[in-house]
Design a protein around this nucleic acid. Structure first.
Lengths: 340, 340
DNA sequence: ATGAAAGCGCTAACAT
DNA sequence: ATGTTAGCGCTTTCAT
């Protein structure tokens, strides 16, 4: 047989009807009380021909694609690469496939990906939104496509989300710095309007205020290495340097490191550094960075679970889940309690 | 309108036939000499309805899916994450979509992904094979699906590949170490049968021999952090420690760093370290690692280009491309020429 | 310059 | 316990 075998071929060879073949091959043989002999014959022929069902025909017919899409701001960022990896694996467990879209942190791209991907009759979508707009996401959902936001999300919308408890994470980090005797702390934030950032700033500020510290710096405006670099350079050029820097993401921390290295500022001797996000490479940088580790794996697993409850169980109620972060003490924060 | 609009809806609204609508929406209006007025009307209605073509129907009809698949050993490894990112972006430029599969470095998974993915009527495939088998890959190709290997590949098969010139890369790295006065060099290799590894060992050995050094160590058996860690531990427990270690991948290097740190061996003062692969995080480890950087971006771009020449131009001739690596001197290799 | 109609491979409602 | 048949939305051949 030259062309790819289809159920018609199998029907002709076995002498049964297309329907019967379809039923057997879909595991509905029992249900339709198709005789064992028939089932076996059909299956063996299918095997022999190396029959693979045409997903397009099936999808066209049933209007489902067994496909979900994941849109992340950048696969090159290890934080999102891990998300992609975990989501991909979890989704496979349901027999579904993941299309990965990269928005390169541009809302325009996100929208394009969204419309491009929906032409594939997706069954669901997981998005790490990169902008401050959510209309296009809500619209997708209103069109009947279950959608979950992870990491970045929006409040007061009908969109489900799973993220870290960023407020608590930032609060703990700041509290830890204060406990180590730091009072002059600067934090370098990411995209200002993004919910994780808003929560982190709040957690940071609250921890400072609760400790009776009113003077602190919040600067920066992107979750990028460049932002971390520039802001650190600026902080270092100030009259009085902060004793500790709190970087709001792994990429920002990289930029801090670059700047601190350039200026020959030793960590943690001269300046302490703490950061959001953890990853394996962080253990080998100089020094290993004390960080707030996000439960990325759990976030993804829960997101996928919720997504499939939306898809399969028709449970459309929006769910909002925040998971606690963990402070991982390494070597980049100095105890300065008795240093004056 | 409740359901997703299709060309039938547009035909009804505009009063033209389905055929005409299809032609206009596919940009074949000119070709079929459809009047400008008609074209504009159809387009405006399509816009208004936010019409998105159903890819499944189209794909079913034309037998193409505008989809390619990429299988990598692990998305969590930044080396492969970068590959995924670049391939994904390049493929989008052709209006195609990428399905990403993760083999978790198990040939069994690779085979599963392969058969799972082929049911999606792929138009092409890019694989970073993880085993020493290629039969399943060749078979896929023989079934008419263009397939390219990147990074890891096989010789003497009909499979196209794009990879680094690993021999040359390893040769340069070794030559550099020797120029810096090192003679007692150990290299920690990855998966032994893999082509990059074979070439790297050859490059390493040739460089040593050409320098008149006959004694050297080649040890290890996986491109993993664990392998790097264990082998370094073993090297350090030997009577005479090597003066330099050559790690054959980023992950192996991470393991080396971990072991060296644990044993308080200073780099490069006590032992020099050079590694294959570069990535942004490597600039912040202690010390920045001198490395052989692979042209990942170019490899991916060329692979995609070749893939599409196979897909679109029907040019099925296997192509074999090796790109030169680059030695990036940072701070992990000490010049020991005059140290005895 | 535009249309009618067949068919891609599959599923499911409706037979028998 | 098995078969007939109508479409899913699209492209394309053949007509006009």
């Amino acid at each position: 047989m030259q062309h790819k075998p289809n159920i018609v071929d199998i029907a002709e060879i076995t002498g049964f009807s297309i329907t019967t073949v379809s039923r057997v091959l879909n595991g509905k043989g029992e249900k339709y009380r198709i005789s064992k002999a028939t089932r076996e014959k059909i299956k063996s022929v299918a095997d022999e021909l190396k029959y693979v069902p045409n997903e397009f025909a099936r999808n066209l017919r049933i209007g489902k694609s067994k496909t979900i899409a994941l849109i992340v701001p950048s696969l090159k960022n290890p934080f999102f690469a891990e998300i992609a990896s975990v989501v991909n694996n979890e989704v496979r467990k349901y027999g579904y496939i993941t299309l990965i879209g990269d928005s390169d942190d541009q809302v325009e791209n996100e929208k394009n990906e969204l419309s491009h991907l929906t032409s594939r009759s997706l069954d669901g979508m997981i998005v790490v939104p990169c902008g401050e707009e959510w209309d296009h996401l809500v619209k997708v959902q209103e069109n009947g496509l279950p959608l979950i936001c992870i990491d970045r999300y929006f409040e007061d919308t009908s969109l489900s989300y799973v993220s870290s408890d960023n407020y608590d994470g930032a609060y703990s980090a700041t509290k830890y710095l204060i406990e180590q005797g730091h009072t002059d702390i600067a934090c370098i934030q990411g995209v200002r309007y993004s919910m994780p950032n808003i929560q982190r700033v709040k957690g940071f500020a609250d921890a400072m205020k609760n400790a009776g510290i009113d003077a602190y710096t919040v600067t920066g405006d992107a979750f990028t290495e460049q932002n971390g670099y520039l802001e650190t350079k600026l902080l270092l050029s100030r009259g009085k340097r902060p004793s500790a820097i709190f970087a709001f993401s792994n990429m920002i921390a990289m930029g801090c490191l670059k700047a601190l290295k350039e200026e020959n500022v030793r960590i943690p001797e001269a300046i302490s550094l703490i950061t959001f996000d953890d990853n394996p490479y962080m253990n080998y940088i100089d020094p290993p960075l004390t960080c707030i580790s996000q439960p990325v794996e759990d976030i993804c697993k829960i997101a996928v679970k919720i997504l499939f409850s939306h898809i399969l169980d028709d449970d459309k109620k929006p769910k909002h889940v925040l998971l606690k972060c963990m402070l991982k003490v390494k070597e980049s924060v100095k105890n300065v309690s008795y240093s004056f």
